[in-house]
Simulated assay, not measured.
Amino acid sequence: MATAREPEYRDGHGFIAEVIRTRRSKTADIRVEDGAVSVVVPLNTPAEKIDQLLVTKRRWIKEKIALQQEATPVRAKRYVSGEAFSYLGRNYRLKVEAGNFAPVKLVNGRLVVTVPGGAQQPHVIRNALVRWYKRQAEQKLLEKVTRYAPMVGAHPAGVGVRSFKSRWGSCTAKGAVEFNWQIMMAPTRMVDYVVVHELCHLIRHDHSQAFWREVERVMPDYQQCREWLRENAAKLVFESP
Score class of each variant (00 low, 15 high):
Leu106Asp: 09
Pro122Asp: 02
Asp221His: 11
Lys140Thr: 12
Arg75Ala: 15
Arg23Pro: 03
Thr3His: 12
Phe164Leu: 13
Arg147Val: 03
Arg162His: 07
Glu198Val: 03
Met1Thr: 06
His201Leu: 01
Thr172Gln: 00
Ala149Trp: 00
Phe15Ser: 03
Arg226Lys: 10
Glu198Asp: 08
Gln120Cys: 05
Asn108Ser: 14
Val196Gln: 07
Ser240Asp: 04
Arg78Ser: 14
Pro7Thr: 01
Arg21Met: 08
Ala154Leu: 09
Val112Tyr: 12
Arg213Phe: 03
Val112Lys: 12
Leu229Ala: 08
Arg162Leu: 08
Ala17Asp: 08
Val39Tyr: 09
Leu88Val: 06
Phe164Gln: 14
Lys105Arg: 15
Ala157Val: 04
Gln209Arg: 02
Glu143Thr: 07
Leu43Asp: 13
Pro42Glu: 13
Cys200Pro: 04
Pro187Trp: 10
Pro73Thr: 00
Tyr222Leu: 00
Lys144Met: 14
Phe15His: 03
Val218Cys: 07
Trp212Asp: 04
Lys105Leu: 02
Arg131Phe: 15
Thr114Ala: 00
Pro187Leu: 04
Met219Gln: 12
Ser86His: 10
Asn232Val: 02
Pro7Val: 00
Arg90Ala: 10
Arg126Trp: 03
Thr22Glu: 10
Leu111Thr: 07
Ala36Lys: 02
Ala17Lys: 08
Gln68Arg: 09
Thr172Asp: 00
Arg131Ala: 13
Leu141Asp: 07
Ala186Thr: 12
Lys140Trp: 06
Gly118Val: 04
Tyr222Lys: 00
Gln121Asn: 13
Gly12Glu: 12
Lys62Leu: 15
Met1Glu: 10
Ile203Gln: 03
Ala234Cys: 05
Gln136Tyr: 04
Ala4Leu: 11
Pro116Glu: 03
Trp60Gln: 14
Glu6Asp: 13
Glu63Leu: 11
Leu142Pro: 01
Gln68Pro: 05
Gln120Ile: 01
Ser38Phe: 06
Phe211Tyr: 02
Ile50Cys: 14
Arg217Gly: 02
Gln69Val: 01
Leu229Asp: 08
Val215His: 05
Ser170Gln: 02
Met219Asp: 08
Thr146Tyr: 02
Ser86Thr: 13
Ser163Phe: 13
Glu178Arg: 07
Leu53Ile: 12
Ala47Leu: 09
Glu6Pro: 04
Asp34Ser: 05
Arg58Pro: 06
Val40Ser: 13
Val191Lys: 11
Arg135Thr: 14
Ile50Gly: 14
Phe179Trp: 10
Trp228Thr: 03
Glu33Asn: 10
Leu43Ile: 09
Arg230His: 07
Thr45Tyr: 14
Ser86Ala: 14
Gln223Glu: 09
Val145Lys: 08
Ala154Asn: 09
Thr56Met: 13
Ser86Leu: 14
Leu94Phe: 12
Val19Ser: 06
Trp60Pro: 09
Glu6Asn: 11
Pro187Gln: 06
Arg31Glu: 14
Gly14Met: 05
Ala84Gly: 07
Gly82Leu: 08
Gly109Phe: 08
Thr3Arg: 12
Glu198Pro: 06
Ile30Asn: 11
Arg10His: 13
Glu33Lys: 11
Val104Asp: 10
Gln68Phe: 04
Ile61Pro: 10
Thr72Gln: 13
Leu106Ala: 12
Val113Asp: 03
Gln68Lys: 07
Arg78Thr: 13
Glu8Thr: 00
Gly14Gln: 05
Lys62Asp: 11
Phe211Asp: 01
Ala36Phe: 01
Thr27Pro: 00
Arg213Pro: 00
Asn44Met: 08
Asn127Ala: 15
Val32Trp: 11
Pro122Asn: 09
Phe164Cys: 06
Ala17Gln: 09
Glu178His: 10
Leu129Met: 15
